[in-house]
Amino acid sequence: MSWETLAAGQQLGAALGEPVEAAVAGKGIGALAKEAAAKKLAKIWAVEHDLLDSYTADGYTAALEQLIQKTKPKLVLFPHTYQVRDFAPKLATRFSQVLVSDVIAARVESGMLTLVRQFFQGKLSGDVRVSGEGPVFASLQAGAWRADTLESGSAAVETFAPMLDTGQIRQKPEAPFREAARAVDLTAAEIIVSVGRGIGEQSNLPVVEDLAQAFGAELAASRPICDAGWLPMERQVGSSGQTVAPKLYVAVGISGAIQHLVGMKGAKTIVAINKDSNAPIFEVADYGIVGDLFEIAPALAAEVRKAKGA
């Protein structure tokens, strides 16, 4: 459950003429269930069990399978998080269904639901229809629906105790941990210059380092750059790195895979420099220059210095 997903549920429920119920799973989730109960929903299911204390794919799948069998929904919505990706496809398979993942929009036309999702890392979009018996399962991309459209109301909380036993749960999770304390806090930066695959090789990095210096910006990167070890992981922006919202974000040679966009699309002003005018980064950019970053970045650094000096 996420507030955005509940907002999507309210909107689609209204369009389909169906009541909307929310489910919260875990151990000791009373407070969260109570918070959800203050929204305009038909019911809140508090799916409580000691074995749901730590997340496991087997535990969550079994618990939600039982809830879905009991409540027989037409549509089951999730936020598209790493955790949901880990179990929701398995849950859908139990109902001979397919999870439509990373959905960015949905529409209802004469009672028919069409889900829109991205293909080819955002370069194309596709309309998906689901048939078959059993509920439609969909996970929704972060930011695709707005949490602030969520309507308030009052819903009853009902506890659902799934039948689970330890033998069913084959994954034994340990406590989550962080690698090392972060030396760089990108979230505090006012201006970020971020570099992606377009830089080609590590020896080209000075081009963007100089641009960052001209702007007085922190240097950041998309995942492939950190994976390659060209910049430390702590400078990574995106779903597996930091989520930033600076006043200016300059994306250099970043095509804009969704995993990156979710980490930076909250920036106030976004500039994209990329050789491909169809790159998804231009979908979120306010300003763009299409062309060779090795010509544009030095020219831009010079112009920024000139503007600041004046």
Binding site: S96, Q97, V98, V100, T114, Q118, F119, G122, K123, L124, S125, G126, D127, V128, R129, V130, S131, G132, A272, S277, N278, P280, F282, E283, V284, A285, D286, Y287, G288, I289, V290, G291, D292, E295, I296, P298, A299, L300, A302, E303
Partner: peptide, 27 residues
């Protein structure tokens, strides 16, 4: 059970101002 009805180039939801010309002019 899940089928792609139509695949297409996404409509831009945001108007991006693109600057043209040589690098110096665009910058």
């Amino acid at each position: 059970v899940a089928s792609v009805e139509k695949i297409y180039v996404p409509q831009k939801s945001k108007q991006t101002q693109i600057f043209e010309g040589d690098a110096k002019t665009a910058a």
